[in-house]
Design a protein around this nucleic acid. Structure first.
Length: 538
RNA sequence: GAGCUCGUAGCUCAGUAGGUAGAGCAACGCCCUUUUAAGGCGUGGGUCCUGGGUUCGAGCCCCAGCGAGCUCACCA
């Protein structure tokens, strides 16, 4: 490791040398430097569950006749020596257990080993359980086994690792020093398990479809590109599994789901990471109304499995994931129409291009001469952008979706289903039979952001081909997120896709909601970070 | 990509008005057999993110860069 940039400083280098010397002393005491096994009778959480605080009522004597002997292992997170005795705290599985080591119990060799231990070391102990004067469950150690040494200094023991950047870059330290961080990822695991249980119980098959695709489809986003050398083939990392999953429904898998990563070449924010986990599922013989019901059930089920309740606290607001509101996109715009923007729109304003234009023009004027409050400025900029797009003959449907995002989205804190989307922003959805400008699609929102997106799948190959062609035209006009043509997908539809509804749910965002995390990076173990400047020592 | 804020010991943070760099934890030595953010005495530890500039003098002021957080833009 000499000359390597593992070390941040001379302090760390010399500490490493010191610990190396200690390790040699430990070996001289007859311990292995890097043993590969320890037979524990219990984990720390098991010990706590069986003899921890809940059982304290039975009195300290409960542990004395007969004595309870345990063998446990863990990482030393606190160590206090007191002459010929000492206490240390072992951490395992996110829980802690105190141990008490005294010279007359472990002998000269054992105590010599104890004195060579440092914060962060892994050890195993055997001994019997007792309670200290203050009532803390403690292992009275009889034998100590050295397991592994921490060669670097742990973060400050009271505050833990607080530097956000370090927590993301060195998650391995964050996880064992900040147990709250650990808990988030335990809940993430439970979320995935609950999702799978939900779909497995309903006869869905879990599948895996390509993440390297020749046509990156199924969403409006810019893909990452890569290259296969042997086949000399340019490939895209997938932006969605959608088109493959529907091919599977054509193939006769009536109910499929996939939980895996999508990759989108876009900026990062508290709600976006370039790779993120998406659940997509498809159900034949169902439509988007069926999925609304399924979604409400699903989210409530997962919340109960993970948190034991549908209530979650997000950004200081209590959200009940068991109580849902349903609004059409147009209703939502009207409901959340900002007072500053003047009279609320009429339904007719959404069906006529000229009326829509004057609606925006009016709102723009209203918000331009108000007090210079931030909301006025933000709204004015937003209306201005929509107006500019309207002037540049952006399709009405797209403008309506933009308007919805401007005035309504951030208000959707409690679980809300927004349905009836414009066809212009939904190239893969089935049109409303009564009005082809609108499709059978919904998105659902919680905490002010979008969690999922669902629709009755377009299964008419002729119409699908037409929509792709339209997207190609958008692309030619500079929209580099417009959908690519996927001839093979159209061919699959031509073999006959049964009436099907499908849905995608952003799992990172769901976990944010369930854990009260304000940033997506707090629910991703290793979020994408910029390159670190080269360490000067290397 | 834009704006705002931040970067001081391994970690958590102070740093007055521009005048020789501070504390706690961690580390090292000694004392201590029921402590628990153990305690007591002592010691060591700094490219003040990097590079320029202003100044007699810069952690502090100015410029540029790097990294991070937040807000916005794009999107899910």
């Amino acid at each position: 490791m000499e000359g390597s940039s593992v070390f941040d400083s001379e302090f760390e280098r010399s500490l490493f040398d010191l610990r190396k010397a200690k390790l040699e002393e430990i070996v001289k005491l007859g311990q292995a430097a890097y043993p590969n096994h320890f037979s524990a009778s219990h984990t720390v959480p098991e010990v706590r569950a069986q003899w921890g605080e809940a059982q304290f009522d039975s009195g300290p004597e409960a542990l004395e006749a007969p004595r309870v002997t345990v063998a446990v292992a863990g990482r030393i997170m606190a160590i206090r020596a007191q002459g010929k005795a000492g206490f240390a705290t072992l951490q395992q599985g996110g829980q802690r257990l105190q141990i008490y080591v005294r010279l007359d119990a472990v002998g000269e060799q054992g105590f010599a080993l104890y004195k060579l231990l440092d914060m962060g070391d892994h050890i195993g102990v055997t001994g019997y359980l007792f309670r200290t004067r203050t009532g803390e469950l403690t292992v009275h150690v009889e034998t100590l086994t050295f397991l592994a040494k921490a060669m670097l200094a742990l973060p400050e023991k009271f505050h833990g690792l607080a530097d956000v950047e370090l927590r993301y870059r060195q998650r391995y330290v964050d996880l064992f020093t900040n147990l709250d961080a650990r808990e988030v990822f335990v809940k993430r695991g439970k979320t995935l398990k609950a999702l799978r249980q939900f779909f497995d119980e309903r006869g869905f098959l879990e599948v895996e479809t390509p993440m390297m695709q020749q046509v990156a489809g199924g969403a409006a986003a810019r893909p990452f590109t890569t290259h296969h050398n042997a086949l000399d083939l340019d490939l895209f990392l997938r932006i969605a599994p959608e088109l493959y999953l529907k091919r599977l429904v054509v193939g006769g898998f009536d109910r499929v789901y996939e939980i895996n990563r999508n990759f989108r070449n876009e900026g990062v924010s508290t709600q976006h990471n370039p790779e993120f986990t998406m659940l997509e599922f498809y159900q034949a013989y169902a439509n988007y109304h069926d999925l609304m019901m399924l979604t409400e059930e699903l989210i409530a089920f997962v919340a109960k499995e993970v948190n034991g309740t549908t209530i979650t606290n997000f950004g200081g607001v209590e959200i009940d994931l068991g109580k849902w509101t349903r609004l059409t996109m147009r209703e939502a715009i009207i409901k959340w129409w900002p007072e500053e923007a003047g009279p609320v729109p009429a339904i007719a304003d959404f069906s006529d291009n000229a009326l829509f234009g004057s609606l925006i023009e009016r709102a723009m004027a209203k918000t331009s001469n108000g007090p210079m409050a931030i909301s006025y400025t933000m709204l004015n900029i937003g209306f201005g952008r929509i107006y500019w797009n309207w002037k540049n003959s952006t399709p009405l449907g797209k403008l309506i979706a933009e308007l919805f995002e401007l005035v309504a989205e951030s208000n959707l804190i409690q679980p809300t289903i927004i349905y009836e989307f414009p066809t212009a922003v939904s190239p893969l959805s089935k049109q409303n039979p009564d009005n082809p400008d609108w499709v059978e699609r919904f998105e659902f929102y919680c905490g002010g952001f979008e969690l999922g997106n669902a629709f009755s799948e377009l299964n008419d190959p002729v119409e699908q081909h037409k929509r792709f062609a339209q997207q190609l035209e958008d692309r030619a006009h500079g929209d580099d997120e417009a959908h690519q043509m996927d001839e093979d997908y159209v061919r699959a539809l031509a073999y006959g896709l049964p009436p099907t509804a499908g849905e995608g749910i952003g799992i990172d965002r769901l976990v944010m909601l369930l854990t009260g995390s304000k940033s997506i990076r707090d629910v991703i173990l290793f979020p994408l970070m910029r390159k670190q400047p080269l360490a000067s020592s290397s």
